[in-house]
Structures are given as structure tokens and as C-alpha cells.
Design a protein around this nucleic acid. Structure first.
Lengths: 172, 172
DNA sequence: AGAAAGTAGTCAGTGCACTGATTAACTCCG
DNA sequence: CGGAGTTAATCAGTGCACTGACTACTTTCT
């Protein structure tokens, strides 16, 4: 007894959503290139010569995962990996011609796939859906870095409610 | 050039959502038991003695993945795996006492975690959010099995347009 | 009864994802 | 200049997820 309804658990639904997406991706976009791999190609299309860590940041892949994804793409000849002459720790990444071609080809297909994926929702619902996911993900991401470590800029300008103590600390 | 904005791609956002969820899960619920593992414990709490494949179906894990998850849980002594005496292909699964205890303990924590996870949204938005994810996932799932293979029951009672041929099949 | 078809589970192979430990290179500061 | 701290990348280990091939058992049909 006392079992829970998983369909009310956002985590479970998030996993199912990704599985559903994976299904559509492999059938409608590509069986070779995965969605995260496309993300890397896309990031390097926007900003060629980016270093590996930053690409991972753009795409949402941690340092270990980006290393694997990049090594697969480079093994397939879709990108080049060169030591940064100005900083011997970094690798600079750049698409090969084939990498650029692949990105162009898949861009069309991903657009179609996204349409099909979101087709069950109305146009307004689609926009709302994406916004809600972003809001939830971004909020959780905030929790990663403890407040104390963040710079004032990241926290924005706090126009909001301030207690007297903050404004005139510990005073009398 | 011609790069795309990944934040408009539901697949990318789905992946990020799951990462965000994973972060909260490991910090707020458990570092040992994962979310899919909890799903299995939950399914067996609701229906003890279920066979492995059906558990996988309930939780949304394919036959390979459920096998791994189950073997981990059984290795940790959270469930028992017994051959079905009535069908030598099947394994029947049942929680051990410790498995049941673990499920109870984690249920409380997952509820708290879900609250925090969805906190950035209003109550109405939360309900809507879950519904939208379900609608998109379910629709994509439909595409897995081609229409031709599905039984009439699965397709529901079609009140809609029917061709004369269907109503009076191929007759003369 | 016996062959054919179907089903439950395993196994091998690939890929994403996270943590913690390690290495190499750079930066900062005394 | 030189040591301390920081940063980029790798590596080892664990876990989820999918496909396709295979085994073993059951059901179905002839």
C-alpha cells in the first residue's frame, strides 16, 4: 500500500519526455548523430573555435560528457581539436567541412521533428510549454551554486523588499 | 552562421530538465537509490509479485534497462526475484522488508523534492505543466506502434466518419 | 503430437550523464 | 622567481537507455 502515482512526479515525466524525444529523433532526424552531438555542432556553427569546456557549457554537458561527445565527433571527422597556442590547457574546436554540412542537413530535419513532437499542443500551449520547462530547469540550476559563492551581478540588482537590518546593519 | 537557438528545442530542454531533476534528487532524496529505482520500488508496493517485464512497463523502462535496475535492487537486498512456477519464462518480483522500508522513507522525501522542483511555478502552472508533458509524451509514444498493428480497443471507439466498407465489410 | 509463432529474459555494444581523483598548464601573490 | 591556488582535460567507476542478437520457455495451429 501507500504507493504513489508516478504521473504526478515531474522527474518521472521528464524522463518519459526524453524517451519520447529520443524515439522521434532517431526516426525523424538521424540514427548516427544524437541530439547532444547536434548541440555541439550547433554551438560550433555559432561560435567556431570555442574551447571544449565552453562548448559543454553552451550545450549543457559537463566536462566528462563533453569530452566523450567531442571525441566521437572528432573520430567521425566532423570537428577538429587543436591545442590553444595561447593556453596549453585548452583544446579549441572547429567544425570540418563535413561537420558543417552535417549540421546544415540536420537543422532542417530537427525543425520538422520539433513540429511533430509539439503537434499535440496548440501554438499558445507550445510556447507556454517551453517557457515552463525553462523556468523549472533554470530555477533548479540556481540551486547548484550556493548563494554565498555567487557574485552580486549574478544575483541581479535587488530592488525588492529589504529589511531595515540589511539597509542599516545591526544599528541602533 | 545559421545556428539554431537550442532553448526553443523541446528535446534539449527535456534533457536539461532531467539534469535539473537529477541534481535535486541526489541532494534532497537519495544518493544511493535513483529515481527509476524508486519507480520500481513504487510499482512493487502497488502490485507485489508483478513480473519483471510488467514492472518495466509501469515505470517506463525497456526490457534491458529494467533487467539492470532490478539486478541492482536485488543485489542490495531490496527485492526478491523468483521464477514464476506457472510460467518458466517469467521472474516474479517482490519487495523485501528493507525494500518496503526504503520505499516508505523515500516517499516522504520525493514529495518534498517535487514541491521544491515545481516551486517556481504557481499551483495552476504546476498542474498545467504536468499535463502538457504527459500529452506530448503520450502522443510520441503512440507513434512507436504503427496504427496497423493496434487493436480497435486501443484506438478507442471511433464515433467519427466511417466508410461504408468498414460497416459492411467487403460483402455482397 | 509436433512444428511455428510468440514471449520473457539475457547479453553485447553504443551513448549520455554524474562524481571524484589525477595530471598538466596557467595565474596570482609574496 | 617560485610556491599556492585555480583551471582544462582525462580517467575510473557507476547508472540509465536503446538496439539487435540469442536462449529458453509457452502458446497456437495444424
Amino acid at each position: 500500500m501507500a504507493a504513489v502515482d508516478l504521473t504526478t512526479h515531474p522527474g518521472h515525466l521528464a524522463r518519459r519526455l526524453q524517451q519520447a524525444h529520443h524515439l522521434l529523433w532517431t526516426t525523424m532526424v538521424s540514427e548516427e548523430i544524437t541530439s547532444p552531438q547536434f548541440g555541439v555542432l550547433n554551438a560550433l556553427t555559432a561560435e567556431p573555435g570555442l574551447d571544449q569546456r565552453t562548448v559543454g557549457e553552451r550545450v549543457g554537458l559537463d566536462r566528462s560528457t563533453i569530452a566523450e561527445v567531442v571525441s566521437r565527433l572528432s573520430r567521425r571527422g566532423l570537428l577538429d581539436k587543436v591545442r590553444d597556442p595561447d593556453d596549453g590547457r585548452r583544446f579549441l574546436l572547429r567544425l570540418t567541412d563535413e561537420g558543417a554540412r552535417t549540421h546544415r542537413r540536420l537543422t532542417v530535419r530537427t525543425a520538422r521533428m520539433n513540429q511533430v513532437f509539439l503537434a499535440p499542443l496548440s501554438a499558445e500551449e507550445q510556447a507556454l510549454f517551453l517557457t515552463l520547462i525553462r523556468r523549472v530547469s533554470d530555477a533548479a540550476e540556481e540551486l547548484r551554486t550556493p548563494e554565498e559563492l555567487r557574485t552580486p551581478e549574478e544575483l541581479g540588482t535587488p530592488e525588492g523588499p529589504r529589511t531595515p537590518e540589511e539597509t542599516a546593519p545591526a544599528g541602533r
